[in-house]
C-alpha cells in the first residue's frame, strides 16, 4: 500500500467516524427535545393512549408466540443439562431467572422493534415525505410533541407490560414442557422458583425493559423523522431503525447487565 492510498484510507475512516459522531449528537439533541416536551403542557393524552394501543396491538401476538416457545425451548435444554447433575428440581428457577432477567426484556424489545417499531418509522417517514411534518411546523406547532413524545411515553408504559406478559407466558411454556411433558412435579417447579427468584431479579428485568423502550421509540422516531425523500427513503429508514435498535438493545443489555448483576 502506497502512502497516498494509506492517506485516503485513513481519511475515509476519519470522515466516517466524524459523520457517526455528528449523527449521534443529532440523535441526542432529538431525544433531549422530546424529553423536554414530556414535561411541558399541553399534554397529548389521547395520542398517548393511541400509541400505547398501537404498540400493544401490533406486538401482542408475536410476544405470546415467542414468549411461549422461548420458555418451552429453555425448559427442554436446561432439563437435559440439569439431569446430568441430578438437579432437575432447579428447572423452575433456571427458566424463570433466564426469562425474567434476560430473555424476557431482550426478546420482547426485539419483537416490538420488528413489529411496532418498524411500523412507527414507516408512519413518521411517510408523514415526512408527504409534508405532513412541514404542515405541523407551518402551523407553528412542534411536530416532536405530536409524533415523538407520545411514542416515548407510550413505550415506557407498553414495554414493561409486554415484557411482563412475555415473562409469564415463558414461565408457563417452561411449565408445560417441564411438568406436562418431562414429568417434573408441578410443586417442585413453582416452589423452587419462589425460593430463588427475588424482587431484585424482577426489578432488573423492569429496568431493562424501560431502557429498551426509550431506545426503540427514540431510534425508530428519529429514523422516520429524518427519512430521505421517496418510498426508497422510507424503506431504508425502516430497515435502519430495526437494525440500529436491535444492535443498541444488545449492546445496552450487556452494559446494563454488568452494572445490575
Amino acid at each position: 500500500m502506497t502512502l497516498i492510498e494509506m492517506t485516503v484510507c485513513v481519511r475515509g475512516i476519519g470522515e466516517r467516524f466524524l459523520s457517526l459522531l455528528k449523527e449521534l449528537g443529532h440523535m441526542f439533541i432529538f431525544l433531549v427535545n422530546a424529553v423536554y416536551t414530556i414535561f411541558r403542557p399541553p399534554f397529548k393524552f389521547k395520542m398517548l393512549l393511541r400509541q400505547i394501543r398501537f404498540m400493544g396491538s401490533k406486538s401482542i401476538v408475536v410476544i405470546l408466540l415467542t414468549g411461549s416457545f422461548t420458555g418451552m425451548v429453555l425448559a427442554l435444554q436446561i432439563y437435559y443439562t440439569l439431569r446430568k447433575f441430578g438437579s432437575e428440581a432447579m428447572l423452575g428457577p433456571a427458566v424463570a431467572l433466564s426469562i425474567i432477567r434476560e430473555l424476557g426484556p431482550v426478546l420482547s424489545a426485539l419483537m416490538v422493534t420488528g413489529r411496532a417499531g418498524s411500523a412507527l418509522t414507516a408512519e413518521i417517514g411517510i408523514m415526512r415525505i408527504t409534508e405532513q411534518i412541514d404542515a405541523l411546523t407551518s402551523m407553528a406547532l412542534n411536530p416532536v410533541r405530536y409524533l415523538v413524545t407520545p411514542n416515548i411515553v407510550a413505550a415506557l408504559i407498553a414495554f414493561p407490560l409486554l415484557t411482563s406478559i412475555f415473562d409469564l407466558i415463558g414461565i408457563y411454556g417452561g411449565y408445560f414442557v417441564g411438568v406436562k411433558l418431562l414429568g417434573l412435579s408441578s410443586g417442585t417447579y413453582f416452589s423452587q422458583m419462589e425460593l430463588f427468584v427475588s424482587m431484585e431479579d424482577i426489578r432488573v428485568g423492569l429496568y431493562k425493559s424501560l431502557s429498551f423502550g426509550v431506545i426503540v421509540s427514540w431510534v425508530c422516531c428519529y429514523k422516520g423523522y429524518f427519512t430521505s425523500y421517496g418510498a426508497e427513503g422510507v424503506g431504508k429508514a425502516t430497515t435502519s431503525a430495526v437494525v440500529t435498535s436491535s444492535v443498541l438493545i444488545l449492546i445496552w443489555d450487556y452494559f446494563l447487565g454488568s452494572v445490575l448483576i
Binding site: 411517510i126 408523514m127 408527504t130 409534508e131 405532513q132 412541514d134 404542515a135
Partner: peptide, 8 residues
C-alpha cells in the same frame, strides 16, 4: 402544500 399534506 403540493399534495395537500392532510393528516392521514
Amino acid at each position: 402544500f403540493q399534495e395537500g399534506a392532510l393528516f392521514d
